[in-house]
Amino acid sequence: MNQSILFGDDAQWNEETQAILFSAQQMGNLIQCRVTISWLESESGDVIINNADALRIFEEYRFDVEEQAEALIEDEEFNASGEIIIN
């Protein structure tokens, strides 16, 4: 992994977006990242029923999520709000 991108330990469930929110930092810039339930379900093969399931699967697949987020950051695939979305 690229050491210039650091990921925080701040994962949290967002009910409104039905996604896990977490942050990354690159050269001092804070980047908000989001991974959707559909991506987590696809990767894990599990069905996510509640926020506890989503957080558990996020932790199990954290390395994969961070790897995907890192690739999107390096490719500058930010949305209009400056966020990285994995879906």
Results as ranks from 00 to 15, higher is better:
residue 5 I to A: 06
residue 6 L to R: 10
residue 7 F to V: 08
residue 7 F to I: 06
residue 8 G to I: 03
residue 9 D to F: 12
residue 9 D to G: 07
residue 9 D to K: 11
residue 9 D to N: 14
residue 12 Q to W: 09
residue 13 W to D: 12
residue 14 N to I: 11
residue 15 E to Y: 12
residue 15 E to M: 11
residue 15 E to I: 15
residue 18 Q to P: 09
residue 19 A to I: 05
residue 19 A to D: 12
residue 20 I to V: 15
residue 22 F to N: 03
residue 23 S to K: 12
residue 25 Q to F: 10
residue 26 Q to P: 00
residue 26 Q to F: 09
residue 26 Q to W: 07
residue 30 L to H: 07
residue 31 I to V: 10
residue 31 I to W: 02
residue 31 I to D: 03
residue 35 V to N: 04
residue 35 V to G: 03
residue 37 I to Q: 15
residue 37 I to K: 15
residue 39 W to R: 15
residue 41 E to A: 02
residue 41 E to M: 01
residue 44 S to Q: 02
residue 44 S to Y: 02
residue 46 D to F: 10
residue 46 D to G: 00
residue 47 V to F: 12
residue 48 I to R: 08
residue 50 N to P: 03
residue 52 A to P: 00
residue 53 D to E: 09
residue 53 D to M: 10
residue 54 A to C: 11
residue 54 A to D: 08
residue 56 R to W: 06
residue 57 I to T: 05
residue 57 I to W: 04
residue 57 I to K: 03
residue 59 E to D: 14
residue 59 E to S: 14
residue 61 Y to L: 11
residue 61 Y to D: 01
residue 62 R to C: 04
residue 63 F to Q: 11
residue 64 D to S: 09
residue 64 D to E: 14
residue 64 D to F: 07
residue 66 E to Y: 13
residue 67 E to T: 09
residue 68 Q to V: 07
residue 69 A to L: 04
residue 70 E to W: 02
residue 70 E to S: 15
residue 71 A to W: 10
residue 73 I to G: 02
residue 73 I to P: 04
residue 74 E to Q: 15
residue 75 D to H: 10
residue 76 E to P: 01
residue 77 E to Y: 07
residue 77 E to M: 13
residue 79 N to F: 01
residue 80 A to Q: 12
residue 80 A to C: 08
residue 80 A to V: 13
residue 81 S to D: 11
residue 82 G to I: 02
residue 82 G to E: 02
residue 82 G to V: 03
residue 83 E to A: 11
residue 83 E to L: 09
residue 83 E to F: 11
residue 84 I to P: 01
residue 85 I to W: 08
residue 86 I to T: 04
